[in-house]
Design a protein around this nucleic acid. Sequence first.
DNA 1: CTAATAGTGTCTATTAGACATTATGTG
DNA 2: CACATAATGTCTAATAGACACTATTAG
Lengths: 233, 233
Amino acid sequence: MNKKGAHKTIDKPLLTVDSVLFTYHEKSLKILLVERSSTPEKGKWGLPGGIVNIAVDEDLKATALRKLIEKTGVNPPYLDQLETLGNRSRDPRGWSVTVCYTALMAYQVCENHVSHVSDVDWIELNKVLNMDLAFDHKKIIHSAKERMRQRALYSITPGFALPDKFTLTDLQHLHELLIGKQIQKRSFRRRIEQADLLFDTGEKQQERGRPATLYRMKKQAITHRFVRNLEES
Amino acid sequence: MNKKGAHKTIDKPLLTVDSVLFTYHEKSLKILLVERSSTPEKGKWGLPGGIVNIAVDEDLKATALRKLIEKTGVNPPYLDQLETLGNRSRDPRGWSVTVCYTALMAYQVCENHVSHVSDVDWIELNKVLNMDLAFDHKKIIHSAKERMRQRALYSITPGFALPDKFTLTDLQHLHELLIGKQIQKRSFRRRIEQADLLFDTGEKQQERGRPATLYRMKKQAITHRFVRNLEES
DNA sequence: CTAATAGTGTCTATTAGACATTATGTG
DNA sequence: CACATAATGTCTAATAGACACTATTAG
């Protein structure tokens, strides 16, 4: 059936990479969007990403990083493959594929770069979900949100959306935004302490009331999974 | 920087889909391998899959299904995207991408088809991991195995590798193979009963000793996640 | 002092682990 | 009856939820 070389006549789909980059700023969850400067979907906002350039990109992750650095100026501390969408209807140019990543980054480390570029902005997640976005990017954002919600239930990896040093209250609030439900302070702190996931910097942060301890992620925090999840909403 | 239309000059990588299809047969975990009939890697065994044909495939899942049906004759009851690998070194022909799926299927439903095709076979997972496979397929199988291990800890989705009707003992043994550790019978049955994931067919299966009840998966079994995992090995 | 926020003590409820016991079939 | 396997009873251990309580800062 399959004569050798037959595949050489098959057209290849367009291959892109898109990232859903989350951050936590001013007590809300935001994602980075880019205003498209070229067709198709010119003028609409969409995810940071673009076409895989096989001349310069070593692998798919390299494409994701190249595009994220273009928009933010820095490497995200957390980058994880989400899902790959491919069909003949998602892009008007025809059959296309996008390999999607979820990324996390502190707002502060790219504040300068982002504020100096006009077509890039952090937008609150809930607002994003009411915008008219390019291609199937809203669907991708929904998937990423759900993935982050799961992560918040069984790990503390969402913390990579915070600055290097952060308080437990901030980390908990971020988790609450993702889960969509209040968490018991005691439960949250206990499990983190028992799993030994954070490093106490000794520094404190003050802002009305008792000063809060600043913590830093330990290496194992990126892979640790709690045996028991927090309850879902 | 990016002149419009510039992307049109960028070469596209080769796009394929590969599936790691698991089944449970004769008390062991097996995966379906295919002997490659054409270059590259001709003669080596690899995963069932192939090039996305944008003329016939509606989306990526359709490619996965088309290739699986080609080899097994039937639709798998469980098919889930695993990960996408893409770089310039995994295929000697140059930059290539493979979108990988994990699939589960009962041995019996495709027994006839598989036994009548010479280049397709079910091979025990542990043997597979000692074979010299095509491309980076061994790495993909390792990922799929790890994914299935996690699923066995917090769900009963591995059960889709069993026949339509199955005993709890078979389901537990399958989980034990995936987790690599014995499970307490009481714990295993309790959580399934409490989550109401199985339908009691009323039928029994006898094979030395007390006859075992045959169960069927309920719809919710495919999405259910237990709040608390089984302990890891 | 009060207000505000950080952090702890402690009880309950749930559920997995451990393992003994009972149930139901064959020969 | 013995034997094998299925299914259940029941106790313990671990940990999340609930919520009251104490600690530490500013003003």
